[in-house]
Design a protein around this nucleic acid. Structure first.
Lengths: 146, 146
DNA sequence: TTGAATTAGTTGCATAACTAACTATATGTC
DNA sequence: GACATATAGTTAGTTATGCAACTAATTCAA
């Protein structure tokens, strides 16, 4: 079997395992060190709500690239921690609007600062152009597989 | 709050959620369509064993970027499916050497072909240089956070 | 050579992921 | 208006992840 066979699988391995996992783990660790008890997955949901409060669950699925059951359970946990509240929409009774609580709003500054610091650590020695290319490649990959 | 605050977090979001998840999901789907009952995580372990059979669990941790409990449990499931076998090392009795079974060896060609096809689909419109840059950036990120 | 520190692997606990199957509401067509 | 179809969200079941705490084997050092 030629070793050539592994080339693209290698890339798959890189894309899926390495850097994203390392970044996620580091950010989670930084949250913990700062005494914050949220997971990075929960943070990524809050992140989109800070940009726009009152999104539907479906909209959160689209923006966080998660499926509906994942969002359902993430919100279950966030609600247990009193960080979000589901508000049934009056226009469409199938829809829950997900709203931030006051304590969740207070988390924004601190956690985004931690995320920025973490990305700065992660991106030492990486140029702006390279970052732009990574973002473009990922967007293309996503569009290709949509 | 300035919208600027979100810039690097945005990148985090891109790196962690989007493309890698899409690629993983597509590959998993392609396995399923081909009647293969393995998960992508199991495949990523087999992938390293195809390159070098008889690795220790610790070595699998290093190569797949997973922690020890994750590898323990992935191997539990792979053993249940009779795709690998743990062989206690004679040199160091703490170590298990993880060995492929015959059925696992037969999976190599088919699954690597599927992974290659999946990566080809994913990388339509992405240049070789760009791919190289993505790999370099990820390596740097990983090294920065090690 | 014995006792401390290190390394390999496992187990328990909580969170999260995906699929498939489900309920409830809304829409669109005859 | 009534029935088929589509959409929003939940639940069940399996797999996977991370951390912390554990056992067993090995190494290093007094």
């Amino acid at each position: 079997m030629s070793n050539n066979q592994f080339k693209r699988g290698e890339l798959y391995s890189v894309i899926n395992g390495m850097a994203s996992t390392a970044v996620a783990r580091r950010l989670q660790k930084n949250f913990r060190l700062a005494g914050l008890e949220i997971t990075i997955e929960q943070w990524s949901v809050l992140y989109h709500l800070w940009k726009q409060d009152g999104l539907s669950q479906q909209e959160l699925c689209n923006r966080t690239f998660r499926d509906k059951p994942s969002i359902t359970r993430l919100l279950d946990n966030l609600e247990k921690q009193k960080l979000v509240k589901r508000m049934p929409s009056k226009d469409d009774r199938r829809i829950n609007l997900v709203c931030l609580t006051e304590p969740a709003k207070l988390l924004q500054d601190k956690t985004i600062e931690l995320a920025n610091q973490t990305m700065d650590e992660a991106l030492v020695g990486v140029g702006k152009n390279e970052i732009e290319i990574v973002k473009q490649v990922f967007q293309k990959v996503y569009d290709n597989l949509l």
